[in-house]
Design a protein around this nucleic acid. Structure first.
Lengths: 232, 232
DNA sequence: CGCTTAATTGAGGTTAATCAAACACTGTGG
DNA sequence: CCACAGTGTTTGATTAACCTCAATTAAGCG
């Protein structure tokens, strides 16, 4: 797909419909189109903070805690916006999980322009608060949940975000490996694998190949996630 | 201190200096002044999302993961702004760690008004991104660090935020209990206590009473936090 | 000074990590 | 289309870190 179409996709997702064409053009001039194959981290080593629109594909935002430990801070999919810090005390990188396309902006330039257009600033803020909210949920998972609860939480979240509902079931084609899941949940691949086995044995889900997960009992899986009942 | 002074404090911290007096007045009309004693959660059971300015005191933002497990998602101190969600799948509450004063806003009303005033929206966005960044760092700690690294990270962070530097040392008067520290770091009070003992025995810090911690070797403590060297 | 609560210390148990090996998927070449 | 190679995943045995339970000590406060 052409770059112009990618920008239009961005505009539809992020910019308010009534935005002036000059503002529209300004954002367009700030956007850099970036393509990435699976495994690429095309925005590494940026000197300044970036704001990245995921036009197509799937990504992980990875923090390297030490040479042999990494933590995945968030996954992002098409139409998501990612705030990518320049490398500070922990180094972050945005890695494509599959062939992907991005529109990358310098955060300061982008926010400057957004500031003039209240609708844009508002949308960015709204999305930042969603990211914050997701990150808080992740903190709860990482701080206070068992391996089984972590995997169940992960799967129900992914079902919401990228699953395709099928009657009472939900099919997820996971773009990330077991290692990625482990690095997201603060576990090892072995533990993730064992928990998959347990959930499979208990008929809460089925797997087929490496990436397809079919949740056969959504309610039971949500129970395993250990969330409080909404009215608790 | 009078409510009016608290609002002025808020205006100084958050609102841009050139803000029109009508906008100033609008924010003032949206603000609810709330006082809390240590242990209070005066904003619990709110129906809608809140934005809370901490005028004085210290708070913990707590998520209840289940009846007997809680995770502290963030600490906030004077002049901080907290985004407090209405109770959803996990229930959050903002608890005062000491006698505190807040200005509370309905998030939707506040953001509506902020949207008209680009400077305000920008400041809120800036602060939200700081919160997001802190939360990401917390995810790294919770997902991939040992008990010792967690406590060292916590202490260096608190030294930055509320510590008072003294030559080569840094004195912190912690407003939170060992339980709070444990609930923030995803550990138990016993483990936190043991890690304090180790760091004390190794002469990286001294403690006096329950709340005073003097970091005597800042560099060594930062090493223990397991951060990557900045240029790694 | 004594009471109450928080913090520390100790012993033993549990969960998940580590180390190691077998197996299965996916893609390639015959 | 099948066999093979290479990698990713699963399974198993052992170990280590942290948790749990229990007891002791210290801090704060009337």
């Amino acid at each position: 797909m052409a770059v112009a179409d990618r920008f239009e996709q961005f505009a539809t997702a992020i910019l308010p419909s009534g935005l002036s064409s000059s503002a529209h053009a300004r954002f367009r001039s700030l956007a850099r189109h970036v393509e990435a194959a699976a495994g690429d981290a095309p925005l590494d080593y940026m000197e300044h903070d970036q704001i990245v629109f995921v036009a197509r594909g799937a990504t992980k935002l990875v923090a390297r805690a030490s040479l042999d430990r990494e933590q995945i801070v968030a996954f992002h999919f098409a139409d998501d916006l990612v705030s990518l810090p320049a490398r500070g005390r922990h180094s972050y990188s945005l890695v494509a999980l599959q062939e992907s396309e991005f529109l990358a902006f310098s955060a300061s330039e982008f926010l400057n322009s957004a500031q003039q257009e209240s609708g844009v600033a508002n949308e960015i803020l709204r999305r930042s608060l969603v990211s914050l909210s997701r990150c808080r949920e992740k903190s709860i998972i990482l701080g206070r949940k068992t391996a089984q609860e972590r995997l169940a939480s992960f799967l129900t979240t992914m079902a919401d975000r990228i699953g395709t509902p099928r009657e009472t079931q939900c099919v997820i084609d996971l773009p990330m490996s077991r290692r990625d899941i482990a690095d997201s949940l603060g576990l090892t691949i072995e533990t993730v694998s064992r928990q998959f086995t347990i959930l499979r044995d208990q008929k809460l889900l089925e797997t087929s190949g490496r990436s397809i997960v079919t949740i056969t009992n959504i309610a039971a899986l949500e129970n395993r996630a250990g969330h409080l009942p909404a009215a608790a």
